[in-house]
Design a protein around this nucleic acid. Structure first.
Length: 561
RNA sequence: GCCGAUGUAGUUCAGUGGCAGAACAUUCCCUUGGUAAGGGAAAGGUCGGGGGUCCGAUUCUCCCCAUCGGCUCCA
């Protein structure tokens, strides 16, 4: 399949070349579900041109064009590509050079390719969209136009994929979140700053309460810290020099500079340092739902999954070297338990190793990376290694959850920190009565409530499980005459989140409304139910499940709790 | 931040160089109902914001803001 998609990319390039002779080519590989080619043209092409290019491609495919491979010398290549500056740039890094020829389009390419366009199905591809992309993925390079295409073996596969994508778009948390009264954005408030609506606030509190209980069981102590602090805190921590472009400009008050906090760590460190710590206290675990502000570049914002103000379920653990493995193990186990509780079964785990720029010693990095590895292996967890993807202060394990469009979002993160204990000169008193530097771990289980809720909405397509639903039960009186009985039923169910739909609408309309709101249970009450002290139960996704006494209904929902 | 697209009522969207349109939602009236939209009326707009061209700009143009698709980035 990859060979086919890659060959499509070449036919795309050939067709563009025929339509736009002045085109300069970047690269054009196969990707998941299709292919792309990066190009530069004098007159920029736009979405309306795609159809024309597509038709040209079909024409070319029908010509049974043969893919001819040739090995050539660098000199020959420089001659062939003398009008293709990007190809010449790529050529610089190549040793063995081969080219593929498809009529007038010659590409620097090691292949493999199909024999001829006979193998391409002209009905199983589609040019999808265009976008800008930096040459070689580097911001400093010029931006080329990337033409994306989809390609499959059969027309049916293409149609299935398009259908799947359409369904995925219907799960988009940005649309569902507003419809379900969870959150909103407002131009005047500012980008990346969500406003939490009543239903969303209930959801946040449910999640917070659950995490609070879970962490307490695991010996965490909760703290709360301010939203701003003196700039020197983050100068000491090193964040100011390393991440300044992502920190909101300082607030100048009475000659003193304050920052909106971009991270909670320094505050937690201050609490650790507020008294002399003994080895007997370790591990010390401090947790906070800490709201931080980061100035993310405008083009990177995305609904709730990438925002500028967000609340982390942040915690820091300080321990001794010989406690490291056990603590990491607990963190990982706990993280996975929590993801399972929320219904996430598909995620990817990454171990990120030392980047080029780093704090701490090589020895320390080795030990910590080994510890992370050991823990992953002990739990028999599959993971990918993200080489050099660690933060400058230490290696980490990330758990990424996929959203409806198959994009991965980092939620859980467990990080070792060699930087802050040094910079803040942290120590505890060991058994021998000497000062010793503790190991420091950062962790967040949900990553941020914002991102987590965004992914959660998409995961369930808005139909949150019973325990997470802001409104669990809605009582729908057949007519106004039964509002009183509806309120009596509500009283009986007061340990749940119940609402009565007491407006003057037809029952069909009320049901429709309740279904749109994705309420887990709708209880319909009228003459019949009032007389027999029952409710007619309509379960989300199942429809009418019959008349139940209130006790019977309680037994049903108790299982959902 | 960069490339491209978009911005009209609370929402989803038509439309136009010369008085601004629909559906849903809202308010009121009628209807009191049995498992996904009962009927009618009213109200609702600086056509994202600011400059420019024009007798006249929501429409053309420039700048800004915001959103969307990517790229880059993501402690």
């Amino acid at each position: 399949m990859e060979k086919i998609r890659h060959s499509f990319a070449h036919i795309l390039a050939l067709s563009i070349k025929e339509l736009y002779p002045d085109v300069k080519f970047g690269t054009g590989p196969a990707i998941e579900n299709g292919f792309y080619y990066d190009i530069q043209t004098k007159n920029p092409i736009n979405e309306n041109d795609l159809k024309r290019i597509e038709n040209k491609m079909r024409e070319n495919i029908k010509k049974n064009i043969v893919f001819k491979k040739k090995s050539i010398t660098k000199k020959e290549a420089q001659e062939i590509f003398k009008d293709q500056p990007f190809k010449l740039e790529i050529l610089k890094e190549l040793k063995d050079i081969s080219i593929y020829e498809t009529e007038s389009f010659i590409d620097l390419c090691s292949g493999p390719h199909i024999k001829s366009t006979k193998e391409l199905n002209p009905k199983a591809f589609k040019l999808e969209k265009i976008a800008g992309a930096y040459f070689k993925g580097d911001e400093k390079n010029p931006m080329l136009t990337r033409v994306y295409g989809l390609a499959f073996n059969t027309e049916k596969e293409l149609e299935d994929y398009l259908k799947l994508k359409e369904e995925a778009e219907a799960r988009d948390h940005r649309i569902l979140g507003e419809k379900l009264g969870i959150f909103m954005f407002d131009d005047e408030v500012g980008s990346g700053l969500p406003l939490w609506l009543p239903n969303g606030t209930i959801l946040r509190n449910i999640i917070k309460n659950y995490l609070y209980e879970e962490l307490e069981k695991n010996d965490y102590e909760f703290i709360e810290t301010p939203h701003i602090g003196k700039i020197s805190l983050w100068q000491t921590s090193g964040h100011w020099e390393n991440y300044r472009e992502n920190i909101y400009s300082p607030i100048d008050i009475e000659g003193e500079k304050f920052l909106l906090k971009p991270m909670n760590c320094p505050f937690h460190v201050k609490i650790f340092k507020s008294k002399l710590r003994s080895y007997k206290e370790l591990p010390i675990k401090l947790a906070e739902f800490g709201t931080v502000y980061r100035f993310e570049r405008s083009g990177t914002l995305h609904g709730l999954t990438r925002v500028r103000g967000f609340t982390q379920d942040d915690a820091h653990v300080w321990c001794m070297q010989d406690q490291l493995e056990e603590e990491l193990s607990k963190l990982l186990k706990h993280g996975l338990k929590i993801l399972r509780k929320f219904g996430f079964k598909e995620y990817k785990i990454y171990l990120s190793t030392r980047p080029e720029k780093y704090a701490g010693t090589e020895e320390g990095w080795k030990k910590a990376t080994k510890a992370l590895e050991t823990v992953l292996n002990n739990h028999k967890i599959d993971y990918d290694i993200d080489n050099g993807g660690g933060v400058f202060y230490g290696p980490k394990i990330d758990i990424k959850i996929k959203d409806s469009l198959n994009r991965e979002w980092q939620c859980t993160t467990i990080q070792v920190d060699f930087n802050l204990p040094d910079r803040f000169q942290m120590f505890y008193i060991n058994e021998k009565g000497e000062k010793e530097k503790p190991l420091m771990l950062h962790r967040a289980l949900t990553g941020s409530l914002e991102r987590f809720i965004g992914v959660l909405i998409e995961h369930y397509a808005g139909a949150l499980p019973f325990w997470l639903s802001p409104v669990q039960i809605k009582i729908l009186p057949i007519s106004d005459k039964f509002n009183k009985y509806a309120n009596e039923v509500k009283k009986e169910l007061e340990s749940y989140r119940v609402k009565v739909f007491n407006e003057s609408e037809t029952i069909s309309k009320k049901i429709r409304q309740g279904e749109i709101e994705k309420i887990p249970y709708l209880l319909i009450v009228g003459e019949k139910e009032k007389n027999s002290k029952t409710v007619s139960v309509r379960k989300r996704g199942k429809g009418d499940i019959g008349v139940k006494t209130i006790e019977e209904f309680k037994n049903i929902i108790i299982k959902e709790k």
